[in-house]
């Protein structure tokens, strides 16, 4: 997903992450290229094992051993891959912040949240003690935690799941980041709380002009939040476009299957358009297109040759030899 972008923003080219396991070598992220413009929210969608979360971590080189990351990540004109670990630490948590699915494990259980917010402030700002206290309170108010003054001195376990996610966001915001990497931040939450957090992220984007790279498996979350989206399957991006374009006219059979798997209004108690089988293991990926064993459109070419991700319209890319047929089918249906 590459759009021309004058300065700023995130530019990822050929990002590849491999793990060598006792059972073989797994390419978890396989040559991902994508851009996130300033103030843009990009959704990275896929099912479990698609490599979407590792992609997110690879961008800031937060992949644990034995993972190996290669490729190019350009952030505001600087190459994060070539940066020293010390310089990268100044970017991470400062210009680029992360939030995770399970905030309880990302927060330190034995420290009150005030300390955890102020810790990030002292690491990435020049504020003095007094100003940090003031700023911590402001941040708690920004993320919508009621009775912020009192709650600052509470510990993570005293917060509900939704409130913990707000605390995580407050910590992330402490350094006024320009890019937020969000890894399924609402998956563990109830739907009314998820709704609140999604709206909060949208507000923060507007207010601070932040870019967001939003990893999720939930197409509804993408529809409600993102500007553009990239669909991942077996470590690769298979389709990109604006959210409106992809939802209206999916060109990859996997995207089409995913959209069809979600029940739609007006088609109650009918058969869903499911995708047969299960996602492949990353160690023994099928030859050719990784999706071909589950694909109704697959031909001999798909079994032999891997389709590259190619641009077919303005802002649209797909990795499928038969994407015109797929799109026409969707049209007819």
């Amino acid at each position: 997903m590459t759009v021309p972008m004058p300065g700023g923003g995130l530019k990822v080219r050929g990002l590849t992450t491999t793990f060598v396991t006792p059972r073989g070598r797994a390419t978890v992220v396989d040559g991902i290229s994508l851009d996130v413009a300033p103030g843009e929210i990009v959704g990275l969608v896929g099912e479990s094992g698609s490599g979407k979360s590792i992609t997110l971590r690879s961008i800031v080189r937060l992949v644990r051993e034995p993972g190996k990351v290669s490729g190019q990540v350009e952030w505001q004109g600087r190459d994060l891959m070539a940066m020293s670990e010390a310089d990268l630490r100044k970017v991470r948590g400062a210009e680029i912040a992360m939030i995770f699915q399970e905030p309880m494990t990302a927060l330190n259980p034995v420290l009150p949240v005030r300390l955890q917010i102020e810790e990030n402030l002292s690491a990435h700002t020049t504020l003095d003690r007094r100003a940090r206290r003031q700023r911590a309170l402001e941040l708690m108010n920004i993320v919508g935690i009621p009775a912020a003054e009192r709650r600052l001195d509470e510990y993570p376990h005293q917060f509900s799941g939704g409130m913990r996610q707000r605390v995580m966001i407050a910590i992330a915001l402490a350094s006024s980041p320009k890019l937020l990497l969000a890894d399924e931040p609402t998956t563990a939450l109830d739907v009314t709380i998820q709704d609140q957090i999604l709206k909060l992220i949208l507000d923060l984007r507007d207010r601070f002009g932040m870019s967001v790279l939003f990893v999720t498996h939930d197409l509804g979350v993408v529809a409600a939040t993102c500007d553009r989206m990239a669909v991942m399957y077996a470590g690769r991006i298979v389709e990109t476009g604006t959210v409106a374009q992809v939802f209206a006219e999916p060109h990859h059979p996997y995207t089409r299957g995913l959209l069809g798997s979600v029940p739609r209004i007006g088609a109650e108690r009918s058969m869903l358009l499911s995708i047969e089988g299960a996602p492949p293991g990353l160690i023994d990926l099928p030859e050719g297109c990784a999706f071909h064993p589950r694909c109704a459109f697959a031909t001999d070419r798909c079994r032999a040759e891997r389709p590259p991700l190619e641009r077919f319209a303005a802002g649209r890319e797909v990795a499928c030899f038969h994407h015109r047929t797929v799109a026409a089918m969707a049209e007819a249906a």
Binding site: V191, T192, Q194, D195, L198, D218, L219, G220, V221, V222, A223, A224, T225, V243, A244, F247, L259, V262, R264
Partner: peptide, 8 residues
Amino acid sequence: DAAPELDP
């Protein structure tokens, strides 16, 4: 209302 719509 809270359930995200599939229609962007």
